[in-house]
Amino acid sequence: MDRRIFLKKSGPALAGVSGAMSLPILASCSSQDAQADSPLAGKKWGMVIDLTRCQSDCTACMDACRQENNVALHGDPRWDVHWIRRATIRPKDESSGLEEKSVLLMCNQCDNPPCAQVCPVQATYKREDGIVLIDHHRCIGCRYCMIACPYNARFFNYKDNPEWPNKEYPRRSHGVAESCHFCAHLLDKGGRPACVEACEQAGQRALIFGDMNDPESEIAQLVKEGLLKRIRADWGTEPKVYYQGL
């Protein structure tokens, strides 16, 4: 065997051996990237608000939210905090033939959240399962997130909350911003958001909640049908709250 033939044959053999030896290392790298140990990995929570089922005089979801999350209601619109609220939208002129509509508004849990981008102290962030939430220990109360949010979903605590209905969950002190987080503390324990439970108990079933990454879930199938609308969908924030009948 001359040198030329030896090199020709040993090249592929060496490549094969080194490739086989690096396989376990490569495999361990990819599993670290996916963070398989995190309980949040692979989930993407979303909500559908079915306005055709929602009753304009019902306040079940809003009341349940205040009870669960200790959301302050001072009785003055300047200081009231809302995680989920109702707004009435009217057509600009009577002749358009459009009807007046009552719409539920809440934090849209953007996939590309402007509030998290602008937060100067990283108090607002997107969790691995897509929920946007605030670390109130870090929040300095600069209100930049309130300005950045295209949905006016963030509210500021100008005052301390005098009520404390749910002692299991902390309230917010004066000087921090807050908004809906899909009841992340209940989701982590395997539950569902308080508003969704309340809506179902009230018999409306207008709020449909689920994991959009699970193709079997009701919400994934509704989104797949493509009949749902999102508010300001053209702004690139990719909200995860969808509307039916908007």
Binding site: S38, P39, L40, R127, E128, L133, D135, H137, E168, D188
Partner: peptide
């Protein structure tokens, strides 16, 4: 414990209450 809970959703340890 706080960082585990609010950043990663791991609620397996004691709460302040």
């Amino acid at each position: 414990i706080r960082d585990k809970v609010i950043r990663y959703g791991i609620r397996d340890e004691v709460t302040l209450a």
